[in-house]
Design a protein around this nucleic acid. Structure first.
Length: 442
RNA sequence: GUGGCUGUAGCUCAGUUGGCAGAGCACCGGGUUGUGGUCCCGGUUGUCGUGGGUUCAAUUCCCAUCAGUCACCCCA
């Protein structure tokens, strides 16, 4: 059999990288829980028609099929697909369990998602998202839209990563504004404006004319709106200065002011109102979020989301929601790519217990057991090789301590192989400094 | 899904106008007969991404494929 090769877009981190990922996930989870979000995991698959309900994402959904099914198979309503985000499954879950849930319902969900896109740096076909959402019945207070960035800010700022900046906008501002100037296809206009960073104002104006049927004056107005950006409520004055009036526009401004001002009070410098942010997903109806990682802007957003009023509804009952999702795999992939994350050792082990000779292995096992009982991650040397080699085994893995069981009545000793210091110790009492207990991520 | 670029040892890379494949680092052994890292000596790295084709001969030329990367699309 020839050597197996990776599968494009399905990353597999090394143990060191996985330890870093687990650390990151732990911190994110702790922050989510600190804000009172309850854990949820949904199944990996959803009925295909549910996944495709929102249109154009169809081509990136992985369909799942039983090998022994007929070709004709469950082509229709029974066909299953792997979920491509955590919001759609969550909306489905809310509808399915509406009778049992307490509203507003706050939940977090950290799971893999799958998208059949062409991979490149920071883009994968299988990746982890860490998602929080709040849904309510009938109406959802706009203050929830202001809370999302605070949670994310706390979560990301607790990690040893570059600064993040959350860019926020509100769909109502764009749609209201476009309506106010007489544009008929706000979706197309959004799509064009979203490319501002990439292709520049001239090309966006062209696109607006071509795809959204904008006149020269309309295109100019759209660009003027898109170029507004401010870390505080002053963006509202800039919008009003454009002289367009529309009730939806006013509503959007009011909501966005609230988001920006809340963020400014609790987490200065975190959020900026950026009216070019559109978001591809068409189910967003209010606030939308994108997040830039300082130094990695060109790889796109590492954390996005928004408010959706129409994703879940059953009969006359609606469940509006707001959510945001950290692209954990993208975040890590980018940082791994530049060696921007370091871990202090390659295994969880804090102490390697040396084995004097195979006859004495039981002695070493007893030492290890005593240390583990007190919460110190310990392994016993795989061989009774020369001590030099056993030390090297630890060194290669950056295990900080090697334990030497005493022989012929002598006491045990433990050596810090980084400094070379070796001291007398007993397995019932010795404890490493707290910083050495677990691998350190920095 | 469409198009471009790349693919030699664990890592960073040389190389051959087509003639049995190299360096540094890493790794293993020894000097150092049970305490590593420095130093010295010696050694192994490999289906030259994979599969076909052309040729007396292919790592080198051609085609396909896979993987990585970039642009488009879309998005975490």
């Amino acid at each position: 059999m020839s050597k197996p090769t990776p599968i494009s877009g399905f990353p597999e981190w090394s143990p060191s990288q996985r330890m870093i990922e687990q650390y990151v996930l732990d911190r994110i989870r702790a922050t989510f829980e600190l804000y009172g979000f309850a854990p949820l995991e949904t199944r990996a698959v959803e009925p295909l028609d549910q996944l495709l309900r929102k249109g154009e994402t169809s081509k990136e959904v992985y369909v799942i099929r039983r090998l022994h099914d007929d070709e004709a198979g469950p082509a229709g309503d029974d066909a299953l697909g792997l979920h491509f985000d955590l919001t759609v499954p969550f909306a489905r879950y809310v509808l399915e369990n509406a009778g049992k849930l307490q509203f507003p319902f706050r939940r977090y969900q950290i799971q893999k998602v799958w998208r059949g896109e062409r991979p490149q740096e920071g883009r994968y076909r299988e990746f982890v998202q860490a998602d929080i959402d709040i849904v309510d019945r009938d109406t959802l207070g706009p203050h929830h839209e202001a809370e999302m960035p605070l949670v994310i800010g706390d979560a990301l700022r607790s990690l040893p990563i570059p600064e993040v900046r959350i860019q926020v906008n509100n769909r109502k501002i764009c749609e209201g504004f476009y309506r106010g100037i007489g544009l008929t296809d706000p979706e197309a206009a959004l799509r064009a404006v979203d490319k501002l960073d990439k292709i520049g104002p001239a090309k966006v104006a062209e696109l607006l004319a071509q795809t959204a049927g904008a006149s020269e004056a309309q295109a100019k107005a759209c660009l003027a709106l898109a170029e507004i950006s401010a870390p505080d409520a002053s963006f509202a004055d800039a919008v009003r200065a454009l002289g367009v009036t529309d009730p939806l526009l006013d509503e959007g401004i009011e909501e966005l002011v609230r988001v920006v001002e809340t963020a400014a009070e609790h987490s200065p410098g975190l959020c900026v109102a950026d009216l070019r942010i559109a978001r591809g997903l068409d189910y967003y109806t209010g606030t939308v979020y994108e997040t830039q990682l300082r130094g990695y802007e060109r790889y796109g957003s590492i954390c996005s989301g928004g408010r959706y009023d129409n994703l879940a509804s059953s009969g006359a009952v609606r469940f509006p929601g707001v959510g945001i999702s950290i692209g954990v795999t993208r975040l890590l992939g980018l940082l791994f790519g530049t060696d921007a994350l370091e871990i202090s050792r390659d295994v969880p082990t804090a102490v390697l217990v040396a084995v004097t000779n195979e006859e004495q292995r039981a002695t070493s096992n007893r030492v290890a057991e005593a240390l583990r009982r007190r919460g110190i991650p310990t392994e016993v040397s795989p061989s009774a090789a020369k001590f030099g080699k056993q030390i090297r085994y630890a060194e290669r893995r950056r295990i900080p301590y090697v334990w030497f069981p005493g022989t012929d009545g002598a006491g045990d000793e433990v050596k810090d192989i980084r400094s070379g210091d070796q001291v007398a110790a007993t397995a019932e009492a010795w404890t490493p400094p707290a910083v050495d207990l677990k691998p350190l991520v920095s």
